[in-house]
Design a protein around this nucleic acid. Sequence first.
DNA 1: CTTGAAGCTATAGTTGCTAGAGACATTAGA
DNA 2: TCTAATGTCTCTAGCAACTATAGCTTCAAG
Lengths: 146, 146
Amino acid sequence: MLTIGKLGDAAGVKVPTIRYYEQIGLLPEAERSAGNQRLYGCKALERLAFIRHARDLGFTLEAIRDLLSLSDNPDQSCAAADAIARSQLVEVESRLARLTALKSELERMVVQCAGGKIADCRVIEVLGDHSLCATDHRHPEAEARQ
Amino acid sequence: MLTIGKLGDAAGVKVPTIRYYEQIGLLPEAERSAGNQRLYGCKALERLAFIRHARDLGFTLEAIRDLLSLSDNPDQSCAAADAIARSQLVEVESRLARLTALKSELERMVVQCAGGKIADCRVIEVLGDHSLCATDHRHPEAEARQ
DNA sequence: CTTGAAGCTATAGTTGCTAGAGACATTAGA
DNA sequence: TCTAATGTCTCTAGCAACTATAGCTTCAAG
Ligand SMILES: [Zn+2]
Ligand SMILES: [Zn+2]
Ligand SMILES: [Zn+2]
Ligand SMILES: [Zn+2]
């Protein structure tokens, strides 16, 4: 059995984060020691590693919640899980497209500035006027966090 | 003079967002009409458009605050503004690198799944085990939002 | 003159944590 | 065995950058 600190070390997750996951129901309530400290077995470690890895791949906690509940009954079809992954892929692709546009606009700004006074600064100038941009990089929709 | 709604339409910013920007001091307190409604001139519109454009390019409100105060005294050197833009570029490049890795891992997962039961689902399997990944896509550091 | 849209303030919620306070538990060294 | 240093407990508040709601007032069109 692992204490919360050991579990965190093993899974690469900070202690308050583990407690947070328990609080929102992503991890089941842990067993407790005689002194009321949480104790975890290897099932909990696996579950936490799953969460951690999915977070690293950019899935939201809501998506992870669904993935976990899917993985809890292994006889079902995996279509739903695959759909979640595919939609995460679409999300990542759209962010990638936008970031690529941002990068090129930022590069243009930085390269074009001759480095004089603010009044002549290309960075300030472009920020004030999107028509100076080469691409349409604007926020297409509310973009997810991470 | 524009009301807050017209200003928002003109700049592509929602009304509550404008009030929020005023609240946090990014926009100066607006003049008010006899009936206590905010009124804006074209200086405010320019400032808001600047904020909006910088947000679209991924700058944080803190960076934008600095950029605005720089642009308020045009005789200074633009080195500080350029530095902010360059550091934003570095930030975007690092996010781009990570998203690229995520994309390839997600593609691998999705492609490799034959689509049977959860027990055999490659998506679930990979999520549970990072050693099945081809790249090291893990969160290098706390990554900014947007 | 009435009605509906737009504006006002203030507060709370979102996501995914992170930080702090103050109290209890456990463990290693003297 | 005592003690000091960690580790853990709960609870609350804070972060970015908004967004939503409630309950009110003001404005513009017909
Ligand atoms: Zn410059
Ligand atoms: Zn632009
Ligand atoms: Zn599958
Ligand atoms: Zn991985």
